[in-house]
């Protein structure tokens, strides 16, 4: 078993009065790809937002053994957690290059990734480096968001629905990128609903239902657990 880098224990979160997370418990190991699956609205995005500190969390969140629940989002990011939101949130008025520069953190020199690595993995980004990011296609924006977060040299990236709305070719490309990220020693928490790439690349999977983890296993385990898939995943 890999040494855990992120351990979440009994995580609860609210939006105003509505109770969304009812004690989420899971962990991610060093350089491990972990899938977090579940139907629409079960609270997967809320889980990552609570870990980042964007939604106030209750419960314990340990990153490299250190309690980080209650930190502000920028402090969490500086600890080494990266976040790629499902809304992508590129900075549309800035150029592709400027978007990538903003991923770098102040006072942190040369991590695992340089801008050239990004351009090598995604030549489209280099071609469009000096164009406004707002004119990129959906797929290119998705690559840009992932690359922007990598520029901050996180030890764990949490990626929310990266393949949503992408062409099959693009989906494959993103899948290969995620595997390369993990090969360089970065752990990945991958959120998916349609299981487009999670089954193929994740080392371990969790299934969420009603604000809790309802299943843990490998892709092979899940393939044989038809009841779980029927109850918690299939629509």
């Amino acid at each position: 078993m890999r040494a855990p880098i992120l351990e979440v224990l009994g995580l609860e979160a609210y939006y105003g009065k509505s109770h969304i997370l009812h004690g989420v418990t899971f962990h991610v190991g060093e350089a491990e790809i972990v899938g977090l699956l579940g139907r629409n609205g079960v609270g997967r995005s809320t889980t990552i937002k609570a870990i980042m500190g964007d939604v106030p969390p209750r419960g314990s969140i340990r990153f490299r053994g250190e309690e980080i629940a209650g930190l502000k989002p920028h402090q969490t990011a500086l600890k080494g957690l990266g976040y790629v939101p499902e809304t992508r949130d590129i900075f549309p008025g800035l150029t592709v290059r400027q978007n990538l520069q903003l991923g770098e953190k102040a006072g942190k020199s040369s991590g695992r990734w340089a801008m050239d690595d990004m351009f090598r993995m995604f030549p489209q980004l280099e071609e469009r480096a000096d164009m406004r990011a707002g004119v990129l296609s959906g797929g290119e924006q998705q690559m840009l968001t992932i690359c922007r977060t990598l520029m901050g040299d996180p030890d764990l990236v949490m990626i929310d629905e990266p393949t949503e709305g992408l062409s099959p070719m693009m989906v494959e490309h993103v899948g290969r990128l995620l595997e390369e990220i993990a090969r360089r020693g970065v752990a990945i928490l991958l959120i998916e609903q349609k299981l487009t790439i999670a089954l193929k690349i994740a080392h371990r999977l969790y299934v969420m239902g009603h604000g809790k983890i309802v299943y843990e296993g490998t892709a092979a385990d899940l393939a044989t657990a038809a009841d779980i898939r029927k109850e918690w995943l299939e629509v």
Binding site: P73, H74, F91, P92, G103
Partner: peptide, 16 residues
């Protein structure tokens, strides 16, 4: 400039 449109995202990239 980035914080004008996406302050939350800017924070989550590690900027105060």
């Amino acid at each position: 400039q980035a914080a004008l449109t996406h302050p939350d995202m800017v924070a989550m990239l590690g900027h105060d």
